[in-house]
């Protein structure tokens, strides 16, 4: 059972968002374990710490104290051990600049935080059940933003 568990890691400084996130995932009943950290620094530490499971997807909020999502993304992509990780940007921002920056830096998907819990659930379901191997290979800008 434990071997089938899907680990996802979320970095978000907003407590409410972390709550929505884990609630949504739990309600999906996908045998998923959510690990949550509060900022970028904590995220990097968690990732580097031995013994921690390798997450299926890393969800990155962009606007975080200490270390922002973009910086984390850069760091992950530079690190040889981590660069293969699938990264999903999870942000309130819908600004073109943020989308483009994260795309250029190698994020796999961009999720704009929905304002409806049901939509959020749908989105999570899609992302987690996504076949990342296919996704990382035919990357394009149109499919980068997640449509729910």
């Amino acid at each position: 059972m434990a071997q089938d568990q899907i680990h996802v890691l979320l970095a978000d400084d907003d407590e409410d968002d972390r709550l929505f996130f884990s609630d949504a995932i739990h309600q999906l009943n996908l045998n998923t374990v959510v690990h949550a950290v509060e900022d970028g620094e904590e995220l990097m530490n968690w990732l580097r710490k031995e013994g921690n499971p390798r997450p299926h997807v890393v969800f990155l909020d962009l606007n975080m104290p200490k270390k922002g999502g973009i910086e984390c993304l850069e760091e992950i992509k530079k690190c040889p051990h981590l660069k293969e990780l699938s990264v999903a940007i999870y942000s309130t921002s819908s600004s073109q600049k943020d989308i483009e920056d994260s795309f250029v830096l190698g994020a796999n998907i961009y999720i704009k935080k929905p304002n409806d819990f049901n939509v959020l659930k749908k989105a999570m379901g899609k992302v987690i059940s996504m076949n990342w191997q296919f996704c990382t290979s035919g990357l394009n800008k149109e499919s980068f933003i997640l449509n729910v």
Partner: peptide, 18 residues
């Protein structure tokens, strides 16, 4: 406006939807 102002609003909306 785009981020911070929408942030609480989004939460309100999400909580309502919940």
């Amino acid at each position: 406006a785009s981020h911070d102002l929408q942030e609480p609003l989004r939460k309100i909306q999400t909580f309502i939807s919940r």
